[in-house]
């Protein structure tokens, strides 16, 4: 359910006289969380920025239709995840046609990216995460870094809580095995 602050924000958004101010507040409230969520999916900063811009444009256009039976932030996460995956799909079509998979390319990008922190363990952790299947990757990021509840992740991914728990368990085991192999 939407919390009181979000309910108030949505009420003001539906009033044409306070619509823009309310949306600005929404952007201000969620931009950073959404940015990091998207960045962990697409890796590159400029790509994350593009995806984030599109996410908020879509949110603005569809916020009137938002049903308050889920939380506003999980609804925004869902749009952001969709946009990020759509972006990767297009990128694969345009650039990575000859490569075996996108994760290999993203992993290479991670090593050469000047915007990635030089911390070795964080780099290895990100590379380990990139070896996971997409859904496990999404679940792990939302659970581990964003500290979301399974019920909230379920609202984003449309997957049952039981399946999410299994995904997270497998993800943790695979990451541990990958990192141990590297050190």
């Amino acid at each position: 359910m939407t919390d009181d602050q979000d309910k108030d924000l949505l009420k003001r958004f539906r009033d044409p006289s306070s619509r823009n101010m309310a949306f600005r507040e929404l952007v201000n409230r969620y931009q950073e969380r959404l940015y990091w969520h998207v960045r962990r999916i697409v890796i590159d900063h400029d790509d994350a920025d593009d995806v984030l811009q599109n996410t908020f444009i879509k949110a603005f256009k569809n916020l009137d239709r938002f049903r308050e039976d889920s939380q506003l932030f999980t609804w925004l996460y869902r749009i952001a995840t969709n946009e990020a995956l759509t972006f990767l799909k297009k990128k694969r079509k345009n650039i990575f046609v000859s490569l075996d998979d996108v994760s290999y390319a993203l992993s290479s990008q991670l090593e050469s990216d000047t915007e990635v922190s030089g911390d070795a363990i964080q780099l290895k952790l990100q590379q380990a995460i990139l070896t996971l299947p997409t859904k496990q990757r999404l679940v792990f990021n939302m659970k581990y870094f964003d500290e979301m509840k399974y019920e909230e992740i379920a609202e984003v991914t449309g997957t049952s809580v039981g399946a999410l728990k299994a995904s997270y368990h497998h993800a943790v085991k695979k990451i541990e095995a990958f990192v141990k192999q590297q050190f």
Binding site: Y35, W36, R39, E115, V116, I121, Q126, Y144
Partner: peptide
């Protein structure tokens, strides 16, 4: 250590 942000953003982003 593990949860520290692995990525940088441009200054003032």
């Amino acid at each position: 250590d593990l949860k520290r942000k692995a990525f940088k953003t441009p200054e003032g982003y």
